[in-house]
C-alpha cells in the first residue's frame, strides 16, 4: 500500500470517529433522543413538553439550549473531593463510551487503522469499562448520596454483566464469528437475529435498560432517595457530560442491538468498499434502526416507576441470568440442528 492511500484511509477513519457515526452524530442523536424522551413523556402525561425554545419545530432545540446553559454555568468543585478523580472521571466515562464506537462498524466498509476480526469482543470490553468510572465518580465525590449511588451501580453492574455477555455469546455461537460485519452478512443471507434467538434479544434489551439507567431500573439516580445519585456534587459541564453519558451508552447498545438482532443494514445488501456505499448509506439505516430502539426504551419512562435495588439484583441473578443461559442453549441447539 502506498503512502497516499494510507493517508486517505486515515482521514476517513478520523471522519468516522468525528463525524459519522462518531461524535457529531452522537451529539445530534443524543440531543434528539433527550428531546424525544421528554416529548414522549409529555404526550403520555397530557402536556406539551419542551416547547418555547424554537416553538415552530416543537422545542427540538431545548436540549441544545440546556447544553449551552451547562457550558456557561459556574464549575463548583467541593473542598473535600478527590480533585483529580472528580474532574477526570466524568470525562473518561464519556470518552470510553465514545471510543467503543470505533469497534462498532455501521457498514461493510471497515477501517484499516484498527482492522480486526474481533470487533464484538473489543467493543464489549470498552463498554464494560465505563461503569468503573461511574463508581469512581461516586467515590470521589465525598458525598453519602453519591457513595450509595456508586455502591448501587456496583451491585447492579455485577449482576447484569453476565447475562449481557451471555446474550452476546449466544449470538456469536449462531453467527460463528466475532466480527459485526460477518454477523450482519450472516443475517442478510439468512434471518435477522431477533428471530433466530428472541431470548437473547430480550436479555439484551433488559440489560440495556439497566446499564443505561432507564426506567424501571433508574436505581442509581433515584432522585427521591439519592438526590442526583452519582452526580449529586457535580455542576455545569461536568454534570452535563454525566447526564449525556448514559445516552451515549444507550446509542452504543442500540447500534449493537441493531447489528446483532435487527439485521444491521438490511435491506441494503451491496458490499462495496467505497465510503458512500460502504459506510454512509448502510450507516444511516443502522443509525435509524438504533434510534427506533432508543425511542422504544425511553418510552418506558412514561410507564414505569423504579424497582428497588434488591429486587433488581435478585431478578438479575435469577430471571435474567436464566433467560441468558436459555438463550445460549437455544443457540447451541439451533447451530446443531440447523447448520
Amino acid at each position: 500500500m502506498g503512502i497516499i492511500p494510507l493517508i486517505l484511509w486515515l482521514i476517513q477513519d478520523l471522519l468516522y470517529i468525528i463525524i459519522f457515526p462518531g461524535l457529531v452524530t452522537i451529539l445530534v442523536v443524543v440531543v434528539i433522543i433527550i428531546w424525544l424522551e421528554r416529548k414522549i413523556a409529555a404526550k403520555v402525561q397530557m402536556r406539551f413538553g419542551p416547547l418555547w425554545v424554537s416553538k415552530k419545530i416543537g422545542g427540538a432545540l431545548q436540549s441544545l439550549a440546556d447544553l449551552l446553559r451547562y457550558s456557561f454555568q459556574e464549575v463548583i468543585i467541593p473542598e473535600k473531593t478527590d480533585k483529580w478523580a472528580f474532574i477526570l472521571a466524568p470525562g473518561l466515562m464519556f470518552a470510553f463510551a465514545t471510543i467503543a464506537l470505533i469497534f462498532i462498524p455501521v457498514g461493510p466498509y471497515y477501517s484499516v487503522l484498527f482492522p480486526s476480526y474481533y470487533t464484538i469482543l473489543f467493543s464489549l470490553a470498552l463498554i464494560i469499562i465505563t461503569p468503573i468510572f461511574a463508581i469512581t465518580v461516586g467515590w470521589a465525590s465525598d458525598n453519602k448520596f453519591s457513595f450509595i449511588g456508586a455502591l448501587r451501580e456496583g451491585f447492579l453492574l455485577i449482576s447484569y454483566e453476565i447475562p449481557f455477555l451471555l446474550s452476546v455469546v449466544s449470538m456469536v455461537i449462531i453467527f460463528h464469528t466475532y466480527d459485526y460485519i460477518n454477523a450482519v452478512q450472516n443475517q442478510l443471507s439468512f434471518l435477522p437475529g431477533i428471530i433466530l434467538n428472541p431470548l437473547a434479544a430480550l436479555t439484551m434489551l433488559i440489560v440495556m435498560i439497566r446499564t443505561t439507567g432507564r426506567f424501571p431500573f433508574d436505581i442509581t439516580e433515584a432522585d427521591s432517595e439519592l438526590v442526583m445519585g452519582l452526580f449529586t456534587e457535580y455542576s455545569a459541564l461536568f454534570f452535563g457530560v454525566g447526564m449525556a453519558t448514559p445516552y451515549v451508552e444507550l446509542y452504543n447498545f442500540s447500534l449493537i442491538f441493531s447489528l446483532l438482532f435487527l439485521g444491521g443494514w438490511w435491506p441494503f445488501t451491496l458490499n462495496v468498499m467505497n465510503p458512500v456505499y460502504g459506510l454512509i448509506l448502510p450507516g444511516i439505516i443502522v443509525v435509524v434502526k438504533a434510534f427506533i430502539v432508543m425511542a422504544v426504551l425511553v418510552f418506558l419512562r412514561a410507564v414505569y416507576p423504579r424497582y428497588r435495588l434488591d429486587q433488581a439484583v435478585r431478578s438479575g441473578w435469577s430471571y435474567v441470568l436464566l433467560l441468558s443461559i436459555l438463550s445460549v442453549i437455544l443457540s447451541v441447539v439451533e447451530v446443531m440442528f440447523l447448520r
Binding site: A41, V44, Q45, M46, R47, F215, P216, D218, A222, D223, S224, R301, A302, V303, Y304, P305, R306
Partner: peptide, 15 residues
C-alpha cells in the same frame, strides 16, 4: 407517584 419515580402518575394526578 413521583416518590417512586413515576412522573406519569404525578402529572396525571395533578392534571
Amino acid at each position: 407517584g413521583i416518590f417512586l419515580g413515576s412522573s406519569t402518575v404525578y402529572m396525571w394526578a395533578f392534571g
